[in-house]
Design a protein around this nucleic acid. Structure first.
Length: 365
DNA sequence: GAGACGTGGTC
DNA sequence: TGACCAAGTCT
């Protein structure tokens, strides 16, 4: 570590000491809690993660509790966070830690990387935040800081750039105090060295920043091209019979597998409203006969490169003879049970509407 | 190495 | 309102 790197790290640490946010996962050095927070924070913002993190640790306070849990309960606590594979991999990691590491989260990068869902970043984060090991980290925030610091022009996604960034991170890392140093680098990227209009006048390391000195912060790092979005439409039915609701467990191989949903159809751009009603009629007919399904709500949301519209229809089934083609994945559940099943974000809103309506009815009576 | 994988917040 | 962004990993 040369003299300049030392000075950068020193100023960074001093700034962090004054500017850091108070976040729940920074008040612990429990490696398991750190691991949970790091997985949740992958591609997800701090404000969204906070309540999920607290609930998750409340339900699974240690590795063995998570290892013992049913996958459905793990998914339910993840419901709404997205990237559900993370939840399954974290669950698998907990099982692996119990089975192969004597229940103790590994303390070195190499062993950590052997865990499901733990890549180079997360391994470095757990080693440095949880154990104070001198392990470098590179993620979106620190990557931005490092490319600007060195006025490195390569595209962020490129493999050459990635290697360069890990080299930069390693060079800058002090032999002691890696934990605070890594937090500081990320916090700087998060609060000061932001993607658009970075606050260089408030930056403690602007003096050493090649992009700042050369007025290149607008073009470094270069914007990465995004895939075009396409539209997808779904129509689903909420089918109720004697206070129970028909739900489908999404099977392996489908989007959101492992979660639950209300039976739905996919509508192409060319599907007319009339045709959609017919298809829904067929869908509902599978489960019995229905009384005039009518749309009751529409939810729009965006998924990576899809623009998704979900229309929800409500149907009332009047016969007790229900045809079930897939009895293993279709079931009638009470509103109470509905609350305890994992749903994706849009469908979770529907559950909330149903249970919320029932709650208000109960309160009135 | 490109593409898949979710969602909510921000400007 | 829409485009962009966020503590990545896996295939």
């Amino acid at each position: 570590m040369d003299k300049k790197a030392k000075e950068i790290s020193r100023r960074l640490a001093a700034w962090y000491h004054k500017a850091k946010r108070d976040l729940p996962w920074r008040n612990t050095s429990d490696p398991y809690s750190i691991l949970v927070s790091e997985v949740m924070l992958q591609q997800t913002t701090v404000s969204v993660v906070e309540p999920y993190y607290l609930r998750f640790l409340g339900a699974f306070p240690d590795v063995s509790a998570l290892a013992r849990a049913h996958e459905e309960d793990v998914l339910r606590l993840w419901s709404g966070l997205g990237y559900y594979r993370r939840a399954r991999l974290l669950h698998a990691a907990a099982k692996s830690i119990v089975a192969q590491h004597d229940g103790r989260v590994p303390d070195n990068v190499t062993t950590l990387r052997g865990l499901p869902g733990v890549g180079r970043y997360t391994a470095g984060a757990v080693a440095s935040f949880g154990y104070g090991k001198a392990a470098p980290i590179v993620e979106a925030n620190s990557a931005r800081v490092l490319t600007r610091l060195h006025a490195y022009r390569g595209a962020l996604k490129g493999s050459k750039t990635k290697q360069a960034l890990w080299d930069f991170a390693e060079e800058l890392l002090p032999s002691d105090n890696a934990r605070e140093h890594n937090y500081a680098l990320m916090e700087l990227g998060s609060l000061i060295c932001v993607p658009v209009k970075p606050l260089c006048e408030s930056c403690p390391i602007a003096f050493a920043c090649a992009a700042h000195v050369n007025n290149l912060t607008d073009s470094i790092p270069p914007a990465s091209p995004k895939p075009a979005k396409i539209s997808v439409h779904f129509a689903g039915v909420v089918t109720e019979r004697d206070g129970r609701y028909l739900v489908r467990r999404i099977p392996e191989g489908e989007w959101h597998h492992g979660l639950y949903e209300f039976p739905k159809i996919t509508i192409s751009a060319k599907t007319s409203c009339k045709k959609a009603r017919e298809m829904l009629g067929d869908l509902v007919h599978l489960y019995g006969s229905c009384i005039d399904p009518a749309p009751c709500m529409s939810i729009k949301y965006t998924v990576t490169h899809h623009r998704v519209t979900l229309q929800v229809w409500r149907a009332y089934v009047k016969t007790a003879d229900v045809v079930c083609d897939y009895p293993d994945i279709l079931s009638w559940v009470s509103a109470e049970k509905l609350r305890k099943l994992p749903f994706g974000s849009a469908q979770k809103k529907i559950v909330k509407l149903i249970t919320g309506r029932l709650d208000s009815l109960n309160t009135e009576s």
